[in-house]
Amino acid sequence: MMIGLYIVTISLLSLSFYRDTNKSIKALKKAWKAFENILPQLLSVIVLVGIMLALFDAEFISNMIGEKSGWYGTLLSALIGSITLIPGFVAFPTAALLVDSGAGYMQIGAFISTLMMVGVVTLPVEIKYFGKRLAVTRNLLAFLFSFLVAYIIGMVVGN
């Protein structure tokens, strides 16, 4: 996927330079400015993610969210999913392992859903672009919505 992204970017950038060098340089300058603008927030996110992931490892999570942990376990998984930020290619195999070691589908549903839709550590970045109210409300709604996702997944997949 990463390769695809690079191929598309390089092709479009080459096309841009072929059509108009000045405009392309302007585009690169804009790209740099936009990046430099958000850099402090991005760097903080990276360090915070490292700390969070070190504290909440797979072992810790699987202790929290067994099949019989019910709504309490679902709430915990949703909270863990909200504050951590794990790339999908790590998260899905981890979730599969958690299921094998006894975690319930409802809990895993809450974990995966909040992991993707809710980002507490990325809030500083989101606020910078969308303001405090929209960013916080979006995360809150996504958090609540994840319980519906968890409930339905628990019903459909659990039995």
């Binding site: 392309s24 302007k26 585009a27 690169l28 804009k30």
Partner: peptide
């Protein structure tokens, strides 16, 4: 790549 793409998007 993401920021270069958005720079291109902004200009073109």
């Amino acid at each position: 790549p993401i920021f270069i793409l958005l720079g291109l998007l902004d200009i073109w």
